[in-house]
């Protein structure tokens, strides 16, 4: 993709502007679909119908978007105008920057950095700054509390995330996303959740990798502030958390960023453990290995995880702050260290 663009437009700024456009389009469509899906899933789980009026419900999100566009853009009088307006952009930009290293297929990846996954970890921590600024600049106690909780939570859960990612990196021996995916080629048994490529001894690692997979999934869930880890925006106590004061398009940007993050972390989990864009059948069915099929595989895997996120959201109640911290420090991190040790031992031996 990059090469193609360079050939077409030359090695100039235009190439690098066009490069991320497909992701932006995908992200917009995904957000539209995911909002609707979330509402439908939640509705059916509660034996309701969900939106079913505007174009049989399918156009509901579009209608909501139009509504948000038209809404008055309110800045509270006592808010810090500059930072208040800056914050949604930081959060959204940080989310979108994370997409640069997500490999959608063998031909398309924003930038195949050789530190890809590390970059992703670092970039997602940028959104913390945006959240903090949003909470502070709103000059509202709910926003501030929400922001503080969000930041405490995200920083804590970055540790198990990083440790779980490290396990895959240790086995793969690379940080580049594209290479990690390529290593998992050749069928479902070569995915990292089953130990990646290797001989029969790799199955010893199965429990550890599965544990790492669970740790990664849980901690990314916490990093996106989704239920059961949604204490930063706990409706019943904090109104809406750090974006309490936001309305109209700025609220939409936070919303967009949240859904973007949902897919981003799902995509990371899928890339690291479930073979990214690799088809589960390996070389058996060559049609399923074409770039188009790869994109479909990848989005499918991502969407399955997004669905599980929604499923969890509408099943579980919210954790308390102390429970949240206990889960992180007493369960996820020790388990991650044991995993790390075991996988390290296996690699050395």
């Amino acid at each position: 993709m990059e090469q193609f663009l360079i050939d077409t437009f030359g090695d100039n700024i235009l190439t690098y502007i066009i490069m991320p456009v497909p992701v932006l389009i995908f992200l917009s469509l995904f957000a539209l679909g995911a909002v609707l899906a979330e509402r439908k899933v939640s509705a059916y789980m509660q034996d309701r119908y969900g939106p079913n009026r505007v174009g049989k419900g399918i156009l509901q999100t579009l209608a909501d978007m139009i509504k948000l566009f038209q809404k008055e853009d309110i800045t509270p009088a006592k808010a810090d105008k500059l930072l208040y307006n800056l914050a949604p952009f930081i959060v959204f930009t940080a989310t979108f920057m994370g997409y640069a290293v997500i490999p959608f297929c063998s031909l398309y990846i924003g930038a195949d950095l050789n530190i890809g996954i590390f970059y992703f970890l670092a970039i997602t921590s940028l959104s913390i700054v945006g959240i903090l600024i949003a909470g502070w600049a709103s000059n509202n106690k709910y926003s501030l509390f929400g922001a503080m909780r969000a930041v405490a939570q995200i920083i804590s859960y970055e540790i198990p995330t990083a440790l779980a990612i490290l396990i895959v990196v240790m086995i793969a021996g690379t940080l580049s996303m594209q290479e990690i995916v390529e290593l998992q080629g050749g069928g479902i048994l070569n995915w990292f959740i089953f130990g990646g490529p290797g001989g029969a001894t790799k199955y010893i690692l199965l429990p550890f990798l599965f544990a790492a997979f669970m740790v990664l999934y849980i901690s990314t869930l916490a990093e996106t502030n989704r239920t059961p880890f949604d204490i930063p925006e706990a409706e019943s106590e904090l109104v809406a958390g750090f974006h309490t004061e936001y309305s109209g398009m700025k609220f939409a940007m936070f919303f967009f960023a949240e859904y973007g993050q949902m897919f981003a972390v799902s995509a990371i989990v899928a890339t690291l453990f479930l073979g990214g864009w690799q088809s589960p059948f390996g070389e058996l069915i060559p049609v399923l290995n074409t770039p188009v099929a790869q994109i479909i595989w990848f989005i499918l895997k991502g969407c399955i995880f997004v669905f599980v996120q929604m499923w969890l959201r509408w099943t579980l109640p919210r954790l308390r702050v102390d429970q949240l911290m206990i889960l992180c420090w007493k369960y996820l991190i020790p388990v991650s260290f044991i995993n790390l040790f075991a996988v390290g031992l296996y690699i050395v031996l």
Binding site: V41, A43, Y44, M45, Q46, D47, R48, Y49, N52, W311, W314, T315
Partner: peptide, 14 residues
Amino acid sequence: TLKHLLFYKNITIQ
């Protein structure tokens, strides 16, 4: 919740 998602009838009155 999965059972409700897949098998239960929706009871909302339209």
